[in-house]
Computed example of a mutant assay.
Amino acid sequence: MNYEFDFGAVLAYWPLFAEGAWVTLRLAFFATVIGFLFGTLCAVARTSGPTWLQRIVAGYVEAIRNTPLLIQSYFLIFGMASIGLRLPILVGATIALVVNIGAYTTEIMRAGIDSIQPGQLEAAECLGLSRTQVYLHVVLRPAMERVYPSLASQYVLLMLASSILSSVGVEELFGISNRVQSDTFRNFEVFVVLGVVYLALSMLLRVAFWLLNLALFTRRRKLGTPI
């Protein structure tokens, strides 16, 4: 075996890797925030909405959770373009990620909502809280606190799964690595660098979610419950 490793040739492209990592983080951030809001609304609809709405949400969740993200991305990005709705590639990619993570968020938040005891709701009603106050302070916040570790892990996986979007033309981190490979022909070195960068991004996100956990859930911090 006469292969000689040359990481210098790959690291010379660090500005491209930094650009790709920034795109990946932006996709993950917007998809996480919008996907959480969308998934939470779907979870509320599935637990408390009318029957017809529950069935629609259930169908959406099953369709998304049982099809690959790549197929969903092709369908949403190129499908919308085929009917004349042309969006910037990053906007289309974000929509695809939101639709995907929204289904998983729906099920995670639904589990949290179902864990709320009926007695807590009755106590809130006895205190004279409005329906909105009950949902915000007695249902959604405690539900999110209980499932927060699952949500955080799912959103880290979302960031890693964004690499699939390189197949539809998004120049995020993995997409940039394909360009570097074609220029340097150093496939092994590129994937080593790529793995290190993804590991660093994952750790960065976990630290961010840990800090968010400390800010949002004071009770969890007092009890010393891990994220």
Rank of each mutant, 00 (worst) to 15 (best):
S82T: 07
C126E: 05
A124D: 12
S82G: 04
G49L: 14
A58Y: 13
T67Y: 06
E107T: 13
G49S: 13
I64M: 15
V44G: 05
T132I: 14
I101Q: 10
Y60T: 07
E62A: 08
L136C: 13
P118K: 00
V139T: 09
G49M: 14
L70I: 15
R131H: 11
Q120M: 04
P88I: 04
Q72D: 14
I116A: 03
W52K: 05
A123P: 11
A45Q: 06
A96V: 08
V98F: 12
Q133S: 13
S130V: 06
T105P: 10
R141V: 04
G128R: 06
L129I: 07
S130A: 02
A81K: 01
L136K: 08
A81Y: 04
V139N: 03
L53V: 15
L85V: 15
A63Q: 08
L87A: 00
G49N: 10
A58T: 12
F75R: 00
T47L: 12
N100A: 09
D114N: 05
Y60S: 05
T132S: 10
A103C: 14
S115W: 13
S48L: 13
L87D: 05
T47S: 15
I56H: 00
Q72E: 14
R65Q: 15
L90V: 15
L97H: 06
A111R: 00
L85D: 03
I113M: 13
I56K: 00
E125H: 03
I95N: 04
A123L: 03
V57I: 15
L90M: 10
T47K: 07
P68T: 13
V91F: 12
I83V: 15
L85N: 01
L97D: 09
L70F: 09
A93D: 09
V44L: 15
N100V: 05
F75W: 11
L53M: 14
Q133W: 00
I77L: 15
G128P: 08
I108D: 02
L129K: 02
P88S: 02
R110A: 08
A45C: 13
V98A: 09
G79Q: 03
M109S: 00
V134W: 03
A103F: 10
L69A: 03
G102I: 11
R46Y: 14
T47F: 09
F75C: 09
H137M: 00
L90A: 09
L121W: 12
G102C: 06
A123W: 03
Q120V: 02
G119R: 00
V91W: 06
Q120F: 07
I113G: 06
I101Y: 11
R55F: 11
L121A: 05
P50E: 04
E122F: 05
N100W: 14
P88F: 04
N66Y: 07
L70T: 12
Q117V: 10
V134R: 10
I77E: 05
L121V: 13
G119N: 01
G112K: 01
Q72P: 14
V138D: 04
T106S: 08
A45K: 01
S48D: 13
S73M: 14
A123M: 06
A81Q: 04
V57Y: 08
E62C: 07
G59A: 11
I89S: 02
I56N: 01
I101F: 10
A81T: 05
D114G: 01
C126H: 09
S115N: 14
G128A: 07
L140D: 01
A63R: 07
